[in-house]
């Protein structure tokens, strides 16, 4: 296996008024291609901050990040919004705790939305159909978000994250709003995605069951990596 992500001494300092918040205090690790990595830790420990930086939604304050051999963040050099967007288009799909679907668009349109903004990978009808079937929502394509259930909404959000054929799926507490049965389904789904497509997954979760699917679990405490394994 080759290395997909290499984080080297990542630091993030937020400024809140006059006060500096050290959300990440030098975190280093590697993630291999096709790996599922879970991130756990108490609330406020810096998990979201970490995945936002890994997912190029934000610049770190210091540290290095390499994606698939490409140096992304180098000490102190901030990337612009457009540069970050380019990288996100190339590598990532995201799922959040909240689904953020657009109420006036149908399920199909919501899923296709990310493909509107880029040309690198254009999902064709077959690809879309495969994704819908994989997620068991092929009969929901023409429904509006308000017409489907919570579990289905999360699947739509996952389908949307997959539509640009990302290399890495970042999921920040994707089951936080779902009951245990739905969480179980999502877990199966993530395993399947990993197995079929070799998709690398970075999963933040509070759910110990879900955390087990990782071939590696990073435990974060006060912005530091307290355990890896």
């Amino acid at each position: 296996m080759s290395t997909l992500i290499e984080a080297d001494n990542l630091e993030k300092i937020y400024r809140r008024g006059n006060e500096d918040v050290n959300a990440l205090n030098g975190i280093s690790f590697r993630i291999e291609k096709g790996e599922i990595v879970t991130i756990v830790g108490p609330s406020g420990s810096g998990k979201t901050t970490l995945v936002n930086i890994l997912g190029c939604l934000d610049n770190p304050t210091r540290g290095k990040l390499t994606l698939d051999g490409e140096a992304i963040f180098k000490d102190g050099l901030e990337l612009t919004e457009s540069e970050l967007t380019e990288i996100r288009r190339k590598y990532f799909g995201y799922i959040f705790q909240k689904f953020f679907l657009i109420p006036t668009l149908t399920v199909r349109e919501n899923i296709l939305l990310p493909s509107v903004f880029q040309k690198r990978f254009k999902a064709n009808d077959k690809y879309l159909q495969d994704v819908l079937e994989l997620l068991g929502i092929e009969k929901r394509g023409d429904f509006l978000p308000k017409e489907i259930s919570g579990g289905e909404l999360q699947r739509v959000a996952i389908a949307r994250a997959l539509i640009n054929n990302p290399k890495i799926l970042i999921a920040d507490e994707p089951t936080g709003n779902l009951d245990s049965k739905r969480s179980e389904e999502i877990k199966e789904l993530l395993l399947e995605l990993n197995k079929i497509n070799g998709l690398s997954i970075i999963l933040v979760t509070h759910n110990p069951e879900l955390a087990k699917i990782g071939s590696k679990t990073l435990t974060i405490l006060d912005g530091k990596l307290s355990r890896q394994g």
Partner: peptide, 14 residues
């Protein structure tokens, strides 16, 4: 506000 933020996280340029 959020929705537009999400569009951007999904690859929409400014």
């Amino acid at each position: 506000y959020q929705e537009i933020g999400i569009l951007k996280s999904m690859g929409a340029m400014p």
